[in-house]
Nucleic acid binder design. Structure first.
Lengths: 207, 207
DNA sequence: TCACCCTTTGACCTGTTGGTCAAACCAGCA
DNA sequence: TGCTGGTTTGACCAACAGGTCAAAGGGTGA
C-alpha cells in the first residue's frame, strides 16, 4: 500500500501532490473513461513518474473512486438548492441557470459523470439509487405540489428534471459537436443557450 | 491483411460473420468506448476466437470505423426528413418523436456516438464538420424561415436542435440513471417522455 | 468424390499496462 | 550540522492486448 494513503494526508507536499494528481486524473478519466485511461497518462499529465503517483494512491481504482466521491456532492448541490418556499418558476429557472453554469465551468466533471453512466454506472450505482434518487424524489414532490396548486403548468416532474439535466449537460458533454456545428457562433454558445433554455422552460412552466 | 477484407464480402459465411462481429462490436464499443474495449471482448461477445475475428477485419480500428460509417447515415436520417413544405410545428414534433424512437430502438448506436463525441470525436470530426454541419445549417435555415414568417415562435434554430438532440438521446445514453431514478415508473419511460417532450416543444414553438 | 479455397484455430510474438521494490534523495527540525 | 522520516526513482515483473502465422478443418462446385 502507498505510504501516503496509510493515514490522512498531513504534510504540505502530500496535500499538493494529491490535488495535482486528482486534477490530472479528472482530465484523463473525463476524456477516455476508466478503462481507456492509463496510470502513465495521468502521471504524465501531472508531471510525475508512475511510481511516484502510486506513492500517493494505492492504485488506479483508488484515484477514480476519490474523484467520483467528490463528484456527487458537487453534482447534487444545485438541485439541493431548489427551495420549496421560493417562487416556483424563479426557482426552476435558477436551477437551469446553475446547471448551465456548471456545464460551462466544470465540463470535465460533467464528462466524468457521463462516462460513468454510459458504462452502466458500475461504480456509482449505489449513489444513484441512494442519495441521488432520494433527492430527486424529494424535489419531484415539491414540483408536483406546485403543479397541483397551479403555480406552474401541469408537468411530469421527473421528465422535467431529465430535460433540465440533458439540455444543460449537453453543452459540456457534446461540446466538440456543439462548437463545430456552431462555427464562429460558438463563442457565445453559453449565453445563447441560457437565453434559449430560459425561454423554453418559462414557456413550459407558465400556468 | 485479413483475407475476407481483401475484396467485397461475397460468401454467405462472410456476410453472416461480418454482421455478427459488427453487432457484437457495437455492444462492446458502445459500453466501453474505443480504448476501453478489447478484441477479445468483442470476439467473446460474438462467440468467435480472436484470430477468427481478425480474419474478417484487419484490426480493431477497422471494426470501429465500419460502425461509425454506418452510424452517421442512420443518425442523420430523421433530420434529413424534416420537410420545408410541411406544417412547421408538425414537422418539428415529428422529428422529436422520431429521435425519441431511435433512442428507444437503437440505444447502442446512441451510446457509440456519445462515447465518440465525449472523447473529442477523434475519428468522426470530419463527418461532424462536413455532412452533419451542412445538414444542420440547411435545416436551421428552414426553421429560421418559419420563425420569420411567424409560423412558429422566434427561436434560435441551432439551440432548438441541440435541445431536441439532448433531451431525446438522454433516454438512451443515461438510461441507467433514468431507470434507477424512475424505479417502477421506468416501464413507461418512453411513452411518458414522448408526452412530456411533445408538450414542451409545442409550448416553445407555438407562435 | 475430390480438389480447392474459404474458414478456423493454437501457438506465438511484441508492446503496453498495472503494480512492486530497494535504494537513493531530500526537507526540516533538534 | 546531522538525523529522521517523508519523497522520488530506475529497474523489474506478471498479466494483458493487438496482431501474426502455419497448419488443420470444412463446404461445395466440377
Amino acid at each position: 500500500m502507498a505510504r501516503a494513503a496509510a493515514s490522512k494526508t498531513r504534510t504540505r507536499i502530500q496535500r499538493e501532490k494529491t490535488e495535482l494528481i486528482l486534477t490530472a486524473a479528472l482530465e484523463v478519466f473525463a476524456t477516455y473513461g476508466y478503462r481507456g485511461s492509463t496510470i502513465d497518462q495521468i502521471a504524465g499529465q501531472a508531471g510525475l513518474s508512475k511510481p511516484n503517483l502510486l506513492y500517493y494512491f494505492d492504485n488506479k481504482d483508488a484515484i477514480h473512486s476519490r474523484l467520483l466521491e467528490r463528484l456527487l456532492e458537487t453534482w447534487l448541490a444545485p438541485l439541493h438548492a431548489l427551495d420549496e418556499n421560493g417562487e416556483p418558476i424563479t426557482e426552476i429557472l435558477a436551477y437551469v441557470t446553475r446547471k448551465l453554469e456548471m456545464a460551462r465551468d466544470f465540463p470535465r466533471e460533467s464528462r466524468l459523470f457521463a462516462n460513468e453512466i454510459l458504462q452502466g454506472a458500475p461504480r456509482i450505482l449505489d449513489q444513484i439509487a441512494g442519495p441521488l434518487k432520494t433527492l430527486v424524489d424529494e424535489k419531484a414532490l415539491i414540483i408536483r405540489g406546485w403543479s397541483q396548486q397551479n403555480q406552474i403548468a401541469p408537468v411530469d416532474p421527473y421528465h422535467l428534471i431529465f430535460s433540465i439535466w440533458s439540455t444543460t449537460q449537453h453543452y459540456a458533454d457534446f461540446d466538440t459537436q456543439v462548437s463545430v456545428v456552431l462555427g464562429p457562433r460558438a463563442a457565445t454558445r453559453f449565453d445563447d443557450a441560457a437565453r434559449h433554455l430560459t425561454d423554453m422552460f418559462t414557456k413550459l412552466l407558465r400556468p
